[in-house]
Every structure is written in C-alpha cells, then in structure tokens.
C-alpha cells in the first residue's frame, strides 16, 4: 500500500513538474523571439554545466578506484611516487583551471551576445504601449498620435500577432516587475524612472503574466493577461476601446449608472463619456470586455462583481478598493450597468 501511494505521489509530482513545461504562464514554452532566446541560453548553460558535472564526477570515481589499488606500493617507492604524483597533479590542476576559465569566459560571451540580440526590437514600427504598475493592478495605455484615440484599460494587454510591441513602463508607488514568461523576461517598473522592454507574440493565444517583484500584501494577486490575436481582431478591439462607454440600455442599467455616479465609485474610477473621471483606480469604460476583475483574481461575471463591490477585503485583503455599503437593489442595478460596459 505504502509503495503504491509513493508511486502515485511521484506520478502526481512528475505530472505537476511536466505541467510547468507548457501552458499560458511558462518560460519553458516560448511564444516569441525574446522568451525563445532566453530559453536557448538557459538550455546551453544547463547543458554545458551538466556535461562538466558528469565529467568531474566520473573522474572523481576513477581516481577513488585507482587510489585504492596503488596504495600497496606506496611504502616501497615512496619518494618517486610522491614526485610523480605531484607532477601529475600539477598537470591536472592547471588543465582544469584553464578549461574552467575558458568555459566561464565563453559563458560571458554567449550571455552578452544573447542579451545584445534580444535588446534590439524585433520588427519595424513596433506598437507602443504604456504600462503603469500600481498596488496591485496594471494600468495599460495605448498612446496614439491623435490624443483623442488614446485608450486606457487595465490588467489586459491586447497585441497583434507577429508585430513587435514596445512597452514603456512606470510605477505609481513601489517597484514592480513586468513578467509574461511565454513572451519576455522580467523587467522592473521603477518609481520616478521609465524603463522600456519589448516582445513579440508569434502564436495566437492568451498568456498570463505576473508581477515578479514583491510589492506588498497582494503581490501574488497582481496578474495580467496578454491576448495575442490576428491583426483584424486587434484593430476591431482597438476601435471598440476607443469608443466612449455605451449608454445603458434598460432602466435597471440606467439606475446602475446613477448609483455609480452618485456614490463613492466615481471618486476613484473613470468611465469615458460620463462624469466619472478620476484616475485613482482602474478605468472601467469597457470593463465588461475584460476577462477578469481585480488584476486576474476573479473571472469577470455578475456574481464576482457583486462580491468584489461588497467585500473586496475578503477577496484581496489590503487592496485599495474599500468595502461598500450598498443595498441589494442598487447593487444589482450597478452590476447590470457594469456588465453593459462592453
């Protein structure tokens, strides 16, 4: 029985470990040139280190075996043995040191050349995106030469497949780190300093990213999604995000808009096309078009929106969104309004 459970546990552990090799948040499953470049470098370093390790251990075992055979003769010709032994040892130590130095310097060259090739943006006319890190969500802006076409969203980055994306990053409070493992390495967001990174998604898909620098209580719940889609779909998404918020259709949603604008919601969130224009919290103009709420914490649906509005501190303790006292009728109207913000 024990053996069976041990086997079962190790199978589960192996399955979990293999699971990390692919998926929407895995550096081992690159979907773009940057992540692929880093992964090649990783395999090269790990492969070389493994060969060196195997050779060193093999030599160690060889010497241990030989040593036990020749120890009998030591008493008879001690003097010459030691001199020969010294000479042999010197050769091996020098050879080992030289080889190690060559390998390490080689690593530096390979490492630097990889970094150099990955630091050049891979593609002409990259898409510009601005990302601002906040405790604990991502503000995402798509600047346009025509300012009225600027769009703002949160925690979800749409990119066209095959086009390079240039991301300028800032922080609103503490140091965060932008990391979408399938697409790019980590890049820190520093308060008062702009950092730049780029990536290119070569495969259609939704990839999960995560803050990779501890930034306070809800660091673990500071995720984002990168949606890589065909160019046409991306343009459609862009056009939809540029529009002002849709006017509430039915009377319930109209009530909801009134609740939103007359309560504390409007003190922090903005909805383009209404009077709400504060930028303390995420822009909600097209909230219903996003997959998740609270920075990848919950799927975006009515039940979760209600729970989040009423008691965000039980879902994400420490989040800057306060608990709201709101009667059930108003809450239902508010959620109906928010769900209409496509």
């Amino acid at each position: 029985m024990q053996c069976e459970s041990a086997v079962r546990n190790s199978v589960i552990a192996l399955a979990i470990a293999l699971n990390a090799c692919s998926g929407i948040q895995s550096a081992l499953d690159p979907k773009g040139p940057k992540a692929a470049g880093v992964l090649h470098l990783t395999w090269f370093l790990v492969g070389t280190a493994t060969v060196v390790y195997v050779v060193v251990v093999a030599m160690l075992f060889y010497v241990l075996r030989r040593g036990s055979r020749s120890s009998v003769d030591l008493d008879h010709e001690l003097g010459t043995e030691i001199i020969e032994h010294d000479r042999g040892m010197k050769t091996w130590v020098v050879a080992g040191t030289v080889l190690t130095t060559i390998i390490l310097i080689g690593f530096v060259f390979v490492d630097l050349s990889t970094a150099r090739s990955l630091s050049t943006v891979g593609g002409a006319e990259p898409l510009r995106i601005d990302v601002v890190g906040h405790q604990w969500w991502w503000e995402v802006k798509y600047p346009d030469p025509d300012p009225q076409n600027d769009i703002e969203t949160a925690n979800e980055i749409h990119v066209p497949v095959g086009r390079a994306v240039l991301i300028k990053m800032k922080s609103g409070d503490v140091i965060h780190s932008f990391w979408a493992p399938n697409l790019d390495g980590k890049k820190d967001l520093i308060p008062g300093h702009e950092t730049v990174t780029w990536f290119r998604a070569d495969t259609i898909g939704v990839y999960r990213g995560q803050c990779a620098e501890f930034c306070g209580y809800e660091h673990a719940k500071m995720a984002f999604y990168v949606v890589a889609e065909p160019r046409i779909e991306f343009e459609r998404w862009l056009a939809q995000q540029r529009a002002e918020a849709s006017t509430p259709g039915d009377s319930l949603a109209q009530d909801g808009e009134r609740v939103f604008l007359s309560s504390s919601c409007a003190m922090c969130h903005s909805i383009a096309g209404t009077g709400a224009g504060s930028n303390n919290g995420p822009d909600l103009t097209h909230l219903a078009s996003r997959r998740t709420i609270a920075a990848g914490t919950l799927p975006n649906n009515a039940a979760n929106l209600e729970a989040w509005i009423l008691a965000p501190q039980t879902i994400k303790p420490g989040a800057k969104m306060p608990a709201n006292r709101i009667d059930p009728g108003s809450l239902r109207a508010l959620v109906a309004y928010l769900q209409g913000l496509k």
Binding site: S262, S263, S264, M267, P322, A323, N324, R325
Partner: peptide, 8 residues
C-alpha cells in the same frame, strides 16, 4: 457623505 466609504 456617500462619496467616501466610512472606513476611508
């Protein structure tokens, strides 16, 4: 009143 939640 009604603009900022009591906790805040």
């Amino acid at each position: 009143r009604g603009r900022i939640p009591a906790q805040q």
